[in-house]
Amino acid sequence: MTSQQCCPFCAIVRGEDVVVREVARNDKVVAFFPTEPAVLGHCMVIPRRHVEEFSALTSDEVSEVMTSAQSVAMSLREVLHPDGINIIQSNGEAATQSVPHVHVHIVPRWDDDSFGDIWPAKTDFSDEEKDRTLAKLRATTLLPHSSATPEDRRQHLAFTQNVISRMAQSSSNTKSWLLPVVTAAYGYSFTKSSVALAVLGIVATVVFALLDVGYLRTERKYRNLYERIAAGDPDVAPYSLNYQCSGETRKTRFLEHCSVIKGWAIWPFYGALLVSGFVALGMAFWH
């Protein structure tokens, strides 16, 4: 037998469940009481077509199911005057879905009912975890009817270009801040044979080089995002500044940093300063 033939909700749709307490139906959905309601008035709305997950519904079916759930909720308000109403839609066993046919619960609630809480009292997710999840969702979520207009795209490109400009300016400032530090440190080390100042200049060069690599990698990522926006990439949500791509790992990020280090904006400049520093260190040890 097929899943549709075994499905108890499909039997209700076909009119084969003689004991079901049916509230209403039309050519798209059926509303009825569950066999064991959580509270009096507990209703369910199902699509007539056998669909196991909410994400598999068509846009028309989503509209019919949720509009019908709203109509049932309005009737519950009028007839039973509950203190509140829960609208619940579950997918998968982990989410307590017991019948593999999309259904929406409309549950009237009272302050003293026996339904109980449906949310944990407290969670302890860190800001980093929440921000990381937010970034992933922003990169993949595009709501219906939210396609960008030409003006939206121009503004999106402008925002992205502003970030690119800031990263480029930060890279330039990093080099500008470093030069007087290493000039003073190496100059004093050469004249006074100071090992400490030679080491200070080398450490400063490495630290500023790592900062610069971070700025330039970010600039590259935003340039790539700019190109995707300009090309009308549908995977880029309107006004999203999230440059991360799916499949990005620590290894890929490490390789991207290595690629930046090999670029002409990094190794000639910082390499020359490091060579000068080791020469100054060697001379300080020699003397």
Results as ranks from 00 to 15, higher is better:
Thr67Phe: 14
Ser276Met: 05
Gly15Ile: 05
Val207Tyr: 15
Arg154Ser: 11
Arg21Ala: 03
Cys245Met: 07
Met167Asn: 13
Thr140Ser: 00
Ala198Ser: 13
Asp111Ala: 13
His81Glu: 12
Met1Phe: 11
Trp267Asp: 05
Lys28Pro: 15
Phe278Ser: 07
Asp112Trp: 08
Glu36Asn: 10
Ser90Gly: 03
Ser3Thr: 12
Glu52Gly: 12
Ala148Leu: 06
Phe54Trp: 15
Ala209Glu: 02
Ala168Glu: 00
Lys130Val: 06
Asp131Leu: 00
Leu134Glu: 04
Val203Ala: 01
Gly92Trp: 04
Leu241Phe: 02
Thr140Gln: 00
Phe285Cys: 06
Val45Arg: 14
Ala69Gln: 10
Tyr188Trp: 07
Asp83Leu: 04
Tyr270Phe: 06
Tyr226Phe: 12
Asp83Met: 01
Leu179Gln: 10
Phe32Leu: 03
Glu227Gln: 11
Asp17Pro: 11
Asp117Arg: 14
Leu137Pro: 10
Glu61Gln: 05
Ser165Ile: 06
Val29Gly: 03
Glu151Cys: 08
His50Val: 09
Ala94Arg: 15
Gln4Glu: 13
Ala231Lys: 13
Leu241Tyr: 10
Asp124Asn: 07
Val279Gln: 04
Cys10Pro: 09
Gln169Ile: 02
Phe115Trp: 10
Val13Gln: 01
Leu137Ile: 09
Phe33Cys: 13
Ala237Tyr: 00
Val62Ile: 14
Trp119Gln: 05
Asp235Ala: 07
Val199Leu: 04
Val104Phe: 11
Ala11Met: 04
Ala121Leu: 04
Ser189Trp: 00
Asp233Thr: 06
Glu16Asn: 13
Ala158Lys: 11
Pro120Trp: 01
Leu200Thr: 11
Ser240Leu: 00
Asp27Lys: 11
Arg153Asn: 09
Phe159Cys: 02
Ala204Pro: 10
Asp112Val: 10
Cys6Thr: 14
Val39Tyr: 05
Asn173Asp: 05
Ser194Gln: 11
Gln89Tyr: 01
Leu210Cys: 08
Asp17Val: 08
Gly232Lys: 13
Arg109Cys: 07
Gln4Pro: 11
His103Cys: 14
Arg77Met: 03
Ala38Trp: 03
Glu256Gly: 14
Glu16Met: 12
Phe254Met: 06
Val275Ser: 15
Ser194Val: 02
Gly84Met: 04
Trp119Phe: 14
Gly263Lys: 12
Leu40Met: 01
Arg253Met: 04
Glu53Asn: 13
Arg109Val: 05
Pro108Cys: 00
Ala209Asp: 01
Arg14Glu: 09
Ser189Asn: 03
Thr249Glu: 01
Phe269His: 09
Val207Thr: 07
Leu216Tyr: 01
Trp119Thr: 14
Val39Glu: 12
Lys28Gln: 15
Leu142Glu: 00
Gln4Cys: 07
Ile261Ala: 14
Tyr239Glu: 03
Glu61Met: 03
Lys175Trp: 02
Leu40Cys: 03
Cys43Glu: 00
Asn91Leu: 02
Met283His: 15
Thr35Tyr: 12
Tyr186Gln: 08
Phe159Ile: 10
Glu16Arg: 15
Asn91Arg: 05
Gln97His: 14
Ser90Cys: 06
Asn173Leu: 06
Thr67Lys: 10
Gln70Asn: 08
Cys245Ala: 12
Thr58Gln: 00
Arg21Tyr: 05
Val260Arg: 07
Glu36Met: 09
Ser172Thr: 11
Glu248Pro: 14
Trp110Val: 15
Phe54Arg: 15
Phe115Asn: 13
Leu142Cys: 15
Asp131Met: 01
Arg77Asp: 04
